[in-house]
Write a protein that binds this DNA or RNA. Structure first.
Lengths: 240, 240
DNA sequence: CGAATTCTTGATAGCCCTCAAGATACGTGG
DNA sequence: CCACGTATCTTGAGGGCTATCAAGAATTCG
């Protein structure tokens, strides 16, 4: 059954031990398919479901007042997403399918009562959110002090880490149809700058860029781009 | 007794209801005084205590490789700090007293076992961490898309919100001996730029800057500096 | 095939950093 | 109380990085 598979995957990815995952066993997980570009919820909507990504990519984005947007997160299989809306039922970002995706909806109410019954699961989630907070601090450092090259390297390494954790076959090939305008939206750069930086990175042999498929050729070279900002041992952090 | 006062304050500040605060009643809180500039722990240290700020200001900073630093957080009375180290016992930032401070140390182990006994406290903490995560997303937006003026306005409004929540008498007077180099470190700007922006903000009548005491004269004008980045209703978010 | 989007490349402009020098304030010791 | 050193603040000049504007090539999609 799909649900048991998801639970097992979540257990390994979030270091929720077998006992703690009991929290998910009594909740109903409703499958939902989203087409590319379709939104699960928008800023201001009331969010009543967490969700688990089974196939595809989901992305969280903030819509800025001047028409720009800030991509905040990338959710791949098997990610549990929406934890930040346990407290705020009103969405502060828009959750959109980046490509055709299959997700499983988890009602917040059921999830919460599951947590009430399982103190160990609550602690695991506290750990997850604590780590995410630390990751966000690193991201602040990169956005505050890094140049365009450092930001792009940080993004690519973060996506690679995410694929690595979720056991993608070749983590160096980013299986995400990211256009350069998308990358620009994620990093607060202009598409033109992204293009220029990628030609430089390609000429240097650090990456290969083939429209919608980015291949990391030299991980340590990319790490060297970020090292002036954050220390080496933090490069395993995921983006989003 | 000091401890009961702290517990009550934490209860109101973190929306931890009276029942849930039972988590703190069985833990020992050890008072510790720190002189200005003294560090509680440094990056890489093993953190075995959360702490609650009773007097003064504490600040968390990341030390970057090129000798710069990124100020990440400001902790005022009555803040509970160090929650992100429930998962990572190794500190990822350095916690320093910004002025002479009195804090109460709370052993992580005792706090965790308290959480095990109190599911509602765990949920409250999940809410707190969830909100902090959302706040960090806003900060990402400002750092990625904002200019120097927007960043400074965002910082000032965030510090004001913090004083407001913690019931300082006049929240518009920032009671934090922040030098311009400090502000530069918090925002990834150069001290020179901070100085120029403050002279502009002063001439415009938005703030008053008197060496170590910043007074916000026009809240809505500052909000207007940030509004192009994040929407109006998010300005209540705290910095840090 | 045609329209829209994406990608590339060049030229220009603006913001912020760096360097530098002088002024002001703070703390310490005499 | 004063002198001194240190740190902070201000202001100017110059330079680098990235945004913007623009135009053309390549790709995708209907």
């Amino acid at each position: 059954m799909a649900k048991q598979y998801l639970i097992d995957s979540l257990a390994s990815n979030f270091e929720i031990d077998a006992d703690a995952t009991g929290v998910l066993e009594d909740v109903e997980m409703t499958p939902k398919r989203l087409l590319k570009g379709q939104s699960l919820f928008r800023t201001g909507d009331v969010v009543t479901n967490l969700f688990c990504v089974a196939e595809g990519w989901m992305t969280a984005a903030a819509e800025l007042e001047d028409g720009e947007r800030q991509l905040l997160n990338f959710h791949v299989p098997i990610d549990l997403a929406g934890l930040e809306f346990l407290s705020e039922s009103k969405a502060t970002s828009t959750m959109t399918a980046f490509e055709n995706s299959l997700i499983y909806l988890i009602p917040v109410s059921q999830f919460l009562s599951g947590l009430q019954r399982s103190p160990r699961a609550s602690l695991s989630l506290l750990n997850v959110l604590g780590r995410r907070y630390i990751t966000m601090q690193d991201r602040i450092c990169v956005f505050a002090h890094g140049d365009a090259k450092a930001k792009i390297a940080y993004l690519l390494l973060g996506l690679r880490s995410k694929q690595l954790r979720n056991k993608f076959k070749n983590p160096n090939v980013l299986r995400l149809p990211l256009t350069q305008p998308d990358i620009a939206d994620a990093l607060g750069l202009s598409p033109v700058t992204v293009s220029r930086e990628f030609t430089k990175l390609t000429k240097a042999g650090f990456v290969e860029y083939n429209r919608n498929e980015i291949t990391i050729k030299d991980v340590s070279a990319l790490e060297a781009c970020v090292t002036p900002i954050i220390t080496q041992d933090k490069h395993a952090d995921e983006f989003g």
